[in-house]
C-alpha cells in the first residue's frame, strides 16, 4: 500500500496549475483534499506521474453568493457546510442535512465539495444534489474557462466531462427560495461507509400545491441521477398533512413517487449486501420519506417570519 513514484508541484495560481496539468508528457492528478486520491494512490489504482497540489492557490477556498447563485470554490472543505448558515435559505439547510453523511469529521475537514464533483463517485451526496439542482461546473483549461451543466457532466463511475488537463475552479448552485422545503436521507450500513442509497429532495409548494419538485438519487445508478419521472408525478399534487410513522400509506402521492423513482428513474447496480431488488425497494422507501421531510421542512419554513433563513 505505497504509491508508485510521482513528481509533485505546488502552483500558486490557477494559470500555473492549468499549465502544470497541461504538461502533455506526464499523466497528472489534481490534489485537493486528498481523501480519495491518496487512498487510490496507495492502492495503486491511480498512478499519476505528476501530482498538482492546489491547496496553496489563493482564493480557491472562497464561498460566495453571486446574484442568485452560490459559488463554491475548489478548496471549500466539506465541513464548512455543517452549518446551515453556510449558504442562504433552504440550500444551506439541504447541505447541512447532507454533509454529516460524508464519512467522519477528520475526512470532512480535508475533503472538498469540488473534489467530490471531480471524483464523481456514484455514491457522492454532493453530486446527486448538484444534479437535482442543476448546478454548473466551472472548468479551466489551457484554452480558458468553460461551464458544464451538471446534467451533461457525469458520464459514469469516476467519469465526467472534465478533460484531464482541466482544473475545476468552482461549482455553482442556484439558491432556493423560501417557498421550498428540503430533505436529505441516507441509508448505509455504518457511518463510516458510503451510502447504499440516499435521496435529496427540494419541493417548492405554493398554496399547498407542489409547483416544482427536485429529487436527487445517490448511488441509484452508475452516476448521480435526477428522478425526472417521479418529479413529474408530483407536480400539481397537494402536499396534505404530515404523515406519522415509518411507513407511508401505499396510496400516498409520495409513496407513489417513490415507486416511480425506483422503477423508472433508478438503474441500481448490485453491490455486496445490496442486490438490485433490495436497492429498488430502499429507493422507493427513501424517496417517500425524503419527500415527507421536505414537505415538513417547507411547512416549518412557512411558519417562520420572512427573511429568517434559519
Amino acid at each position: 500500500m505505497k504509491p508508485a513514484a510521482f513528481d509533485y508541484v505546488v502552483p500558486r495560481t490557477v494559470p500555473e496549475a492549468v499549465a502544470a496539468l497541461g504538461d502533455a508528457g506526464r499523466k497528472a492528478q489534481v490534489l485537493a483534499g486528498g481523501q480519495s486520491l491518496i487512498l487510490e494512490m496507495h492502492l495503486q489504482r491511480i498512478r499519476p506521474e505528476l501530482v498538482v497540489d492546489i491547496n496553496r492557490i489563493a482564493g480557491l477556498d472562497r464561498l460566495s453568493v453571486e446574484g442568485d447563485t452560490l459559488r463554491v470554490g475548489a478548496l471549500v472543505r466539506h465541513s464548512v457546510f455543517e452549518s446551515a448558515q453556510s449558504a442562504p435559505g433552504p440550500l444551506g439547510a439541504l447541505f447541512a442535512r447532507a454533509v454529516v453523511n460524508i464519512a467522519h469529521p477528520p475526512i470532512r475537514s480535508r475533503g472538498t465539495m469540488v473534489g467530490s464533483f471531480a471524483w464523481a463517485h456514484p455514491a457522492s451526496e454532493w453530486c446527486a444534489i448538484g444534479t437535482a439542482l442543476d448546478a454548473d461546473i466551472e472548468v479551466h483549461g489551457l484554452e480558458g474557462k468553460r461551464v458544464v451543466a451538471a446534467r451533461d457532466y457525469f458520464h459514469g463511475p469516476y467519469r465526467t466531462a472534465r478533460r484531464p488537463q482541466e482544473l475545476i475552479t468552482a461549482v455553482r448552485f442556484p439558491l432556493l427560495g423560501d417557498d421550498t422545503g428540503v430533505g436529505f436521507i441516507e441509508h448505509r450500513r455504518t457511518h463510516f461507509c458510503f451510502a447504499q442509497v440516499a435521496v435529496a429532495a427540494a419541493l417548492t409548494v405554493r398554496d399547498g400545491v407542489i409547483g416544482e419538485a427536485r429529487i436527487g438519487l445517490v448511488n441509484c445508478a452508475d452516476r448521480p441521477l435526477r428522478a425526472g419521472a417521479a418529479e413529474r408525478a408530483l407536480i400539481g399534487v397537494e402536499v396534505g398533512p404530515p404523515v406519522d410513522g415509518h411507513r407511508l400509506p401505499d396510496g400516498h402521492p409520495f409513496a407513489h413517487a417513490g415507486r416511480i423513482a425506483a422503477t423508472q428513474d433508478a438503474a441500481p447496480l448490485a453491490e455486496p449486501f445490496a442486490d438490485v431488488e433490495y436497492k429498488r425497494h430502499a429507493i422507493a422507501v427513501l424517496v417517500g420519506r425524503t419527500l415527507c421531510q421536505a414537505a415538513n421542512d417547507q411547512r416549518s419554513r412557512l411558519a417562520q417570519p420572512k427573511g429568517d433563513h434559519k
Partner: peptide, 8 residues
C-alpha cells in the same frame, strides 16, 4: 475497511 465494515 470500506468493504469489511467494523462498528465505529
Amino acid at each position: 475497511l470500506l468493504d469489511y465494515l467494523l462498528p465505529t
